[in-house]
Nucleic acid binder design. Structure first.
Length: 503
RNA sequence: GGUCCCAUCGUCUAGCGGUUAGGACACUGGCCUUUCACGUCGGUAACAGGGGUUCAAAUCCCCUUGGGAUCACCA
């Protein structure tokens, strides 16, 4: 291995003592010697955490956890104009919601500008970079002309050989890229990829305002943070040869690359808002569980035989880069919904109760104000809710003091014909001992036998009396959760309602 | 347009020379059932096209076609 190169690089180019986040530095020092496996997620804070970014983060996190490596979060905010603090917070919030914890960082590239400038100076001194005085307008004009004539819109190198330095004139710094030869790498997911160097031009590494540019900072950071494998979106493939050239010019070892395919919308174009929500947090607000999102995301582009359901532990155990597919995949909300339903169905009611609370409060219901305990309520609803929204809506009737009768349901089930039945059933229930679902079922059976009716003769009207609607959890469960007193109260209300109707 | 990447049911995918091409979502038929669901049993549905290599190709190679990415003083 090239570990000697790595340690040399880190010794020579370690972090300056000026990192903004104070908790960061001790962990840097502590973790560096601990592991050679170092992965990172490096989003740019120009928006929320979208599902594509989240999946990239997940793959990095999974590999780090599987191999006992280190997972680093780095915020790529070198574009001061487009980066915002809200975006940083949104990304952090998304990562936390998904449970993707990081071992080092978050680092901010904007804190490292002096470091980058130092490397630029070195490259300049070594003649591996040069000042370019062409204006942005000039360049744009040349590019358009080239495109119009069908030539490559590539920098013409006019400042390559400049020696005089017009003082005071603004300049950018360009990397002097080799114009011949081939740059190749063996991508961990795509296989061997190579580019002719003549396709590459002298990329700008520092703007005229002195700030560095992504393709440069990403190399410096991945090298100094000793990232062993770079897992990122395959929209970065075409950047990779330029970056490799930079690694070499800087004398850094080149990391391994794994370019994961994009996520597409239903029309197979790049996933965007017009396909629906793309923000991870939007899914939380729509009532999705983080484990469903994780499970969905990991299966979009990664597989382990025919397995579909993975716990976090299983993922850490089974994840491999080899399992990542090469082709882009369509984001399928239906499957996400199915996974969400699965996790709601099999989730721990007490935990779901915690997660459900905000949705309930949003609907003006606070279980703390009275009514049945939330976990048993959830148990009756789990297999009929696909999202937390549906779970919340389904739980409302338990907590409303007034049952809201659906017109059609009341018209059909709360009739004078049912009046004596409901009243008689209430009388039976008032003295019934066993208030468990099974016990209540026994009561219903006995009641039906005594009245000479079938379940269909009493069940539906009791349901409407208690829930107000014709669709609800199993009626035995509802009664058990509501309790005798509340059930009797609602039965009485229904009886009164019928009486009111006939008068 | 140049360069690069990709190609199995509608969608996510298994397959890594020999399979009746499997699973999942969705759709759909039956069963279960006091409602709605859940569950369960079954069904429809794919190797983009053309050349090779091979006894044998969804699997390997080439071409075509189709999709995507990228060509910024964005990341």
């Amino acid at each position: 291995m090239n570990s000697s190169c790595i340690s040399r690089a880190s010794l020579l180019h370690g972090f300056p003592p000026c990192l903004r986040v104070s908790v960061v530095q001790p962990s840097v020092l502590r973790s560096y010697p601990m592991s050679d496996i170092r992965l990172r997620f490096a989003p740019s804070p120009t928006g929320y955490l979208h599902v594509g970014g989240a999946r990239t983060a997940l793959f990095n996190w999974l590999l780090a956890r599987k191999l006992g490596g280190t997972f680093i979060l780095r915020i790529e905010d070198t574009d001061v104009a487009r980066s915002t603090e809200e975006s940083v917070n949104a990304i952090l919030e998304g990562m936390e919601w998904l449970g993707l914890d990081w071992d080092e960082g978050p680092f901010f590239q904007s804190d490292l500008f002096p470091v980058y400038r130092e490397y630029v100076r070195t490259l300049l001194e070594q003649g591996k970079a040069y000042r370019c005085y062409c204006s942005a307008e000039e360049l744009e004009a040349k590019r358009e002309a080239a495109l119009a004539e069908g030539r490559k819109p590539k920098y013409d190198g006019s400042c390559r050989g400049l020696s005089g330095e017009p003082a005071g004139k603004p300049f950018v710094v360009r990397f002097r890229a080799p114009q011949e030869g081939v740059t190749a790498f063996d991508d961990l997911v795509k296989g061997p990829i190579s580019f002719n160097n003549e396709e590459l031009d002298d990329l700008i590494i520092q703007r005229s305002d002195g700030t560095p540019i992504y393709n440069f900072t990403v190399v410096i950071d991945d090298a100094t943070m000793r990232i062993s494998t770079v897992i990122r979106g395959d929209d970065h493939i075409s950047n990779t040869p330029r970056q490799i050239l930079l690694y070499e010019a800087l004398g850094f070892p080149v990391p391994r690359f794994a370019h994961v395919p994009m996520i597409l919308g239903s029309d197979k174009s790049r996933l965007s808002k017009r396909h629906g929500a793309t923000s991870v947090m939007a899914y939380r607000d729509m009532g999705y569980l983080p484990e469903a999102m994780i499970n969905y995301l990991v299966r979009l582009g990664w597989s382990h035989g025919d397995d579909e359901i993975f716990s976090r532990e299983e993922l850490i155990e089974k994840f491999t880069v080899e399992g990542i597919g090469k082709s882009a995949g369509v984001f399928n909300p239906d499957k996400l919904l199915w996974l969400n339903a699965h996790y709601i169905k099999s989730g721990d009611p007490a935990r779901l109760a915690q997660l459900l609370l905000p949705f309930l409060l949003e609907r003006g219901v606070n279980p703390a104000d009275g009514g049945p305990e939330l976990p048993p309520v959830i148990t009756t609803l789990q297999e009929r809710a696909r999202t937390m929204l549906e779970l919340a809506d389904g739980a409302l009737f338990y907590y409303r003091s007034e049952v809201l009768y659906d017109d059609a349901a009341a018209a059909k089930q709360l009739t004078p014909l049912q009046f004596p039945l409901l009243r008689a059933f209430g009388e039976q229930l008032a003295t019934w001992e066993e208030m468990t679902p099974g016990g209540i079922e026994t009561l219903f059976k006995a009641f039906c036998a005594a009245q000479g009716i079938k379940m269909g003769g009493i069940g539906p009207s009791v349901r409407v009396a208690l829930c107000g609607v014709t669709t609800s959890p199993a009626i035995y469960d509802v009664i058990a959760v509501l309790g005798r007193d509340e059930t009797l109260r609602r039965l009485e209300c229904a009886v009164t309602f019928i009486k009111g109707k006939t008068e």
